[in-house]
């Protein structure tokens, strides 16, 4: 009886359910969410709002901060673009082809999710340094990867790869061969099937994977700082600038840069959600 009484009381907000435990589980969920995530995030915004307008501009949009945003966003964009191409090829190979070692390749794609970012960072730095396994050949060609913005792109490519592959894979798998056969039986060639049938169906998932990879890259820290070189104005990413401001006890400047980055991530989150809603409408 207490159960039905309590669900009646809550009726404007929730539909009746026979299953108990709503109050306590929702209470725990919202309390922990507020304590661990929401209130602390509000703290950074409050801290930055301690600055007046010009003060915020000076801290959050200083020339050094602008250079750092350009690098973080630019390198994340470049890395997400590389991943959009090679991630799509990888997803295509995993779904459509049979080849030797496929289960291993499939598992390895998730390596960036499982490998600590610092480990990835030192491994990539060692590999692409001028005396490294790959870096020596680049050096021989007069190219420098590690300790330049190119190094940042390499690290962010590593970090973002699984997002594109894992977003495209299920869509490719669902794309039934029937549609392609139908197109072919109507006289379409392979190229026009890819261009007119496959690519349009992949569009939203592709964009989502790209955006997820981009969003992850913008905030990434651990894998980047070892390979980046970390020169102010040249190879210093935005998250590193926050750390540097903190180490110099410039808490408000750190908070201002954090607020700029948070706003950018929320904007991207909004874009991703919109794209996914669009994808659901398309597939429905």
């Amino acid at each position: 009886m207490t159960l039905s009484a309590s669900s009646k009381r809550l009726s404007p907000f929730r539909r009746r359910s026979a299953i108990p435990g709503f109050g306590i589980t929702l209470g725990v969920t919202i309390s922990l969410l507020s304590l661990v995530v929401l209130i602390p995030l509000a703290a950074v915004i409050l801290k930055a709002s301690g600055l007046d307008g010009p003060g915020f501009m000076a801290a959050g949009f200083s020339p050094r901060a602008m250079a750092a945003y350009r690098l973080s966003f630019g390198a994340a964009f470049a890395a997400a673009s590389v991943n959009a191409v090679f991630g799509a090829l990888t997803a295509w190979a995993l779904v459509r082809y049979e080849f030797f070692g496929k289960p291993i390749v499939n598992a390895l794609v998730d390596l960036p999710f499982a490998l600590p970012t610092a480990v990835a960072g030192i491994a990539l730095a060692a590999l692409y340094a001028p005396n490294g396994w790959v870096g020596q050949y680049l050096a021989a060609m007069g190219l420098k990867a590690a300790y330049t913005p190119v190094g940042v792109v390499i690290a962010l490519t590593f970090i973002g790869l699984p997002f594109v592959v894992r977003t495209l894979e299920p869509v490719l798998r669902d794309l039934s061969a029937d549609v392609e056969e139908a197109a072919a039986s109507l006289g379409a060639g392979r190229i026009s099937i890819i261009g007119r049938v496959i690519l349009p169906a992949l569009g939203p998932a592709w964009l989502t994977g790209f955006a997820l990879s981009f969003a992850r890259g913008v905030g990434e820290y651990g894998s980047v700082i070892f390979i980046a070189g970390n020169m102010p104005y040249k190879s210093e990413i935005a998250p590193l600038l926050i750390v540097i401001q903190l180490e110099q006890f410039n808490y408000q400047a750190a908070a201002a840069i954090a607020v700029v980055m948070l706003s950018a991530s929320f904007a991207m989150l909004l874009v991703i959600n919109t794209v996914q809603a669009w994808a659901r409408r398309l597939s429905a």
Partner: peptide
Amino acid sequence: SVSPVVAGLIYV
């Protein structure tokens, strides 16, 4: 969607 560095910063 929050940078790990920002996650640390908020607690500082």
